[in-house]
Structure formats: structure tokens, C-alpha cells
């Protein structure tokens, strides 16, 4: 096999000592190539020939792709580099031709960057629940914010207030700058935040059923639900805030708006109270089952446990404690150890 011909750059440095060779890396720019020529000049002149001052290889430039990329960054890409206060939604898909402002990806019009709650909006929600003591459902309906979101805002706000009290470091500049980049909603009555009456589409209801009925029969939503399956509920019973439906029904009946609103507020307050009462009763029952024995060092708690709960194989999930002869599988290979929920 003939010896491989080395590149001219390597040949160029043939006469130099090895540290110089290692310091030279094939460069992509003309300037760097010139710099390399300078390093060769440092070699002892006795070993040098005229060839060391130039090279026959053309200097390596940027590839076309790379050049295009850098040109783009300098021209069109400049727009996306830094945020501008008061100008959110700096997305690639947010072009003038397209009407919704929050289009993030140029090829996906189905994903929109929807507004998030602003600082003032979160404060508003927190104030109306924690200070004005309004029921969660009423706040959700008032601002058109999902109930789960209202609860989450309260939960996060509680931590934020606690941190504030403790003087813990918060990511204030980060928060400010993120809320400048994404669209925000300040929760004004003209701008509802999100749909609050979402109904999950049950898989059973996605089929087409041919169901013959008599023409004279009133075929309502309840009948349709029954046709899809015995356990399928009609939409009216799946509303997240059923009091809202009652409110609209009051309006249809010809009730005055003010009265209907009062009824709605009362109903939501009552439902919230009922839930709290139910929780209280549940915890009291649980407490009743336990026997507490307070010694000076420990508090022992005894609870009635049924042995039958372990099941026939002794592996039932609801069973308590370790049973003789039933090894744990939690150290076995291939068993998923990631927890499925955190309390």
C-alpha cells in the first residue's frame, strides 16, 4: 500500500518542531490562516525555505450553509434575539399575514401561544378568595378562569407570600422578563381568560350509532347519552360548575338577573361549605377508628386492620404491612421504581 499523502498544511510545517504542529489547527478563516503563516515564521530560519510564507491550498472559508446562517442571524434573525418591552409574541410564526398573534411555529397553525395570567390578575384572584372570601366557583365564573387554575394560583401565591415573609431570594428579573415575552391577560371583564365549561369527550361518544326512534318522540341529550352507553352521563350532569347551568335556567324561566346572580352566589357558597363539612366528617370518622395512647415519650396510634385485606395471594394493594413468605419485588430488575404519585 502506498503511503498516504499528507495534506499540504502538514507538509508546510514539516520543518517545525512538534509543539508548533500541535498549536496549529486547520482554520476556517483567512485571517486565521494568515496567523498560522506567522507561527511558521517563528521556526528557526536555517531549516526554512521560501515555501513556508505561502500555501498552495486555498484558505478554508465558511461553508455556504454556515454563511447563510450567519447572514440570517444578522438580518431577519436579529428580531428574535432580545425581548422588547411592550411587544410580546416574538415568534417565528407570528408574521403579518397570519391573523392570530400567538402562532409560534410557522407550520403549525393549530398551536397558539395563549395568554397567561399577569401578576395583577393573580393578585386579583388571590384577593377575591382570601380577603373577600368569595367561593372558588364564583371567582372562576366571574373572571372566566378554570377552577383548577384558580386553585393553583392560590397555592402558588401562598408559597410566594411565605417566601416574601421569609426574605427568600425570588427570581424577580426572570419573572418580569418572561411576562414581557409571553402574552398576558390582566383579567378585565371584556377579555375572558379561558373556557370554564369544558366537557371531556368520552371515547364512547365518538362513535356513530344508528338508533331508530319514533318521529313523535322528543329525543333529548339524556336519551343520546343512554344510547352511547348505560353509564354515559348527559352533558348537563358533567358541568364543572353546575350552578352556572342553574343560573342560566333561572334566566330562561324569566327570573331577574340580580336575583339569579344572588341565587348563584348562594348555591356556590353552599356547595363549598358542603365539601368542607364532608371533609370534616371524613377526618372525624378516621380519627374514631384510631386509638391514641400517649406515653411521655411517644404517641402510639392503633388502628383496626383486617387480615383478609391482603387477599388470597397476600399481594393486595390495600393490604398493610409485610407478610411472612411474601417477598417484595421492588428490588427486582426491570421493575419500574419511579413513583406514580407524590402526596
Amino acid at each position: 500500500m502506498p503511503p498516504r499523502i499528507r495534506s499540504s498544511q502538514a507538509l508546510l510545517l514539516n520543518g517545525c518542531s512538534s509543539p508548533l504542529l500541535s498549536s496549529f489547527t486547520p482554520s476556517h478563516t483567512v485571517a486565521a490562516a494568515a496567523g498560522a503563516a506567522q507561527t511558521t515564521r517563528q521556526c528557526p530560519p536555517s531549516q526554512h525555505t521560501q515555501t513556508s510564507y505561502f500555501s498552495t491550498t486555498a484558505p478554508l472559508e465558511l461553508t455556504r450553509l454556515r454563511r447563510d446562517f450567519e447572514t440570517w442571524l444578522r438580518t431577519q434573525g436579529k428580531r428574535y434575539r432580545d425581548p422588547t418591552p411592550g411587544e410580546p409574541c416574538r415568534y417565528l410564526g407570528n408574521t403579518k399575514q397570519f391573523s392570530p398573534k400567538g402562532k409560534v411555529f410557522p407550520l403549525n397553525p393549530e398551536f397558539i401561544s395563549q395568554p397567561v395570567l399577569s401578576e395583577s390578575a393573580r393578585e386579583k384572584i388571590w384577593r377575591s378568595v382570601m380577603v373577600d372570601a368569595q367561593p372558588l366557583k364564583a371567582v372562576s365564573a366571574k373572571y372566566s378562569v378554570d377552577m383548577r387554575r384558580v386553585a393553583a394560583v392560590l397555592r402558588l401565591k401562598a408559597i410566594e407570600k411565605q417566601w416574601e415573609q421569609e426574605g427568600k431570594q425570588m427570581a424577580l428579573p426572570y419573572a418580569k422578563s418572561v411576562l414581557e415575552m409571553v402574552p398576558v391577560n390582566h383579567l378585565t371583564p371584556e377579555r375572558p381568560h379561558e373556557p370554564i365549561n369544558d366537557i371531556h369527550v368520552h371515547g364512547y361518544t365518538m362513535q356513530q350509532i344508528f338508533l331508530p326512534t319514533s318521529e313523535s318522540r322528543e329525543f333529548t341529550r339524556a336519551d343520546a347519552a343512554k344510547a352511547f352507553g348505560e353509564h354515559i352521563l348527559p352533558v348537563d350532569q358533567k358541568m364543572r360548575i353546575p350552578e352556572l347551568l342553574a343560573f342560566e335556567k333561572d334566566l330562561v324561566k324569566g327570573e331577574e338577573r340580580r336575583t339569579a346572580e344572588e341565587n348563584f352566589y348562594e348555591a356556590t357558597t353552599k356547595s363549598e361549605r358542603d365539601i368542607a363539612d364532608r371533609e370534616l366528617i371524613k377526618s372525624q370518622l378516621e380519627e374514631k377508628r384510631k386509638l391514641r395512647v400517649d406515653t411521655d415519650r411517644f404517641e402510639f396510634r392503633f388502628e383496626q386492620i383486617s387480615v383478609d385485606k391482603a387477599g388470597r395471594k397476600g399481594r393486595s394493594r390495600s393490604a398493610v404491612g409485610w407478610r411472612y413468605g411474601v417477598p417484595y419485588n421492588d428490588r427486582r430488575r426491570g421493575v419500574v421504581k419511579i413513583p406514580t404519585s407524590v402526596e
Binding site: 432580545d82 425581548p83 416574538r90 417565528l92 383548577r148 410566594e160 425570588m170 419573572a175
Partner: peptide, 29 residues
């Protein structure tokens, strides 16, 4: 602190999350 370059083009928060940026916490709704 300043946001890193080209962050605005990627800054969006989907609706299934509720984020509190101040405390770097979020809830998966």
C-alpha cells in the same frame, strides 16, 4: 440578570400549566 439571546422566539406557556415565575414553581393542571 438578562434573558439569554433568542429566548423570546421560544417563550410560550401552554394552557395545561399554571406557572409562578417568581418562585420558579408550576402546577400541572
Amino acid at each position: 440578570w438578562k434573558p439569554r439571546p433568542y429566548m423570546p422566539a421560544f417563550a410560550f406557556i401552554p394552557r395545561y400549566l399554571e406557572v409562578n415565575q417568581k418562585i420558579c414553581s408550576a402546577v400541572y393542571l
